[in-house]
């Protein structure tokens, strides 16, 4: 619809040239920087680096933790999103703000908060998560799960109320309606949320570093690996890990856009 309308506009005005020029500069800026990373290593170098045990270990740790985070985010996030989308209660705005806080706050601050809560004299000190894989998962969950909740909540909220009402009058309990109407209709929003949460968990650095430290083979994730190798002068290893992350981010975005578009076509 929009595209059709824009075709009617003449593309030779001064304004059009101006915005095209500015956009051009911006995309050159983005594109060249990414191209620099892509050309910073050769294929052989890349494969050799990826094969090194330390890097392999960091890849495995990253995958394990980010997948665990997605599962935990689903277990907690879907009920939270559904609750916020369907109920009205006092103090809802406070809970709402609480969910947004990890998105807005610097990850280092989140990490510090977790460190204090789980550290020596902290509220949860008995759980012993500092400098462990569990710590990584907690840090990533804290920072990344709000993305799933937000996305799922919007998806639940955008379901036509009459459709849910119809289900109830047809004899469906609230749970049956949730399971057979709300969840399927919110599917794309939830999948988008999973992808965002996963990507955020995979890319998490600040909070993870604060909570789990940077212990090779133990708590070294891909992002922490990039930082450590760059500091120690092994730039090729950093580049290899970065390339992996960028390629997976790119793939994620394509999937994400696909579901986004699919979402629109339903409406």
């Amino acid at each position: 619809m929009f595209e059709q309308r824009f075709h009617l506009i003449h593309h030779n005005s001064f304004f059009h040239i101006l915005i095209s020029l500015i956009a051009g500069i911006y995309f050159v800026f983005l594109g060249t920087i990414i191209a620099c990373l892509l050309t910073a290593t050769s294929l052989n170098e890349f494969i050799n680096n990826i094969k090194s045990p330390e890097i392999l270990s960091s890849i495995i740790i990253s995958l394990e933790t980010s997948i665990a985070v997605v599962i935990l985010a689903l277990i907690f996030g879907i009920p939270v999103a559904y609750l916020l989308a369907t109920r009205r209660f006092k103090g809802k705005i406070i809970l709402d703000t609480l969910i947004d806080l990890p998105i807005i706050s610097p990850p280092l601050v989140c990490g510090l908060a977790i460190l204090i809560a789980f550290g020596g004299q902290g509220l949860y000190s008995q759980f012993d998560v500092i400098f462990t894989i569990k710590g990584i998962i907690i840090a990533q969950l804290f920072v990344a799960s709000p993305f799933l909740i937000r996305s799922a909540r919007i998806a639940f909220e955008s379901i036509d109320q009459d459709i849910l009402t119809a289900a109830r009058t047809l004899g469906a309990s609230e749970f049956y309606t949730f399971r057979n109407v709300s969840l399927p209709l919110a599917r794309n929003g939830i999948i988008s949320g999973i992808i965002m949460t996963w990507a955020r968990a995979l890319g998490e650095f600040g909070a993870t570093a604060m909570v789990a430290g940077c212990i090779p083979y133990k708590t070294e994730t891909m992002t922490i690996g990039i930082y450590m190798h760059a500091l120690s002068g092994n730039l090729d290893a950093s580049v290899a890990l970065s390339l992996l992350l960028i390629v997976s981010a790119f793939a994620t975005l394509i999937v994400f856009k696909y579901f986004g578009r699919y979402n629109d076509s339903i409406k």
Binding site: D160, D162, I163, T165, A166, A167, R168, T169, L170, G171, A172, S173, E174, Y176, V181, P184, L185, I266
Partner: peptide, 18 residues
């Protein structure tokens, strides 16, 4: 509502799109 056995027909049809 789901135990009342009362049907409802809406202005906007409210069919399940999925």
């Amino acid at each position: 509502p789901h135990k009342r056995g009362i049907g409802f027909v809406f202005q906007n049809y409210a069919l399940f799109p999925h």
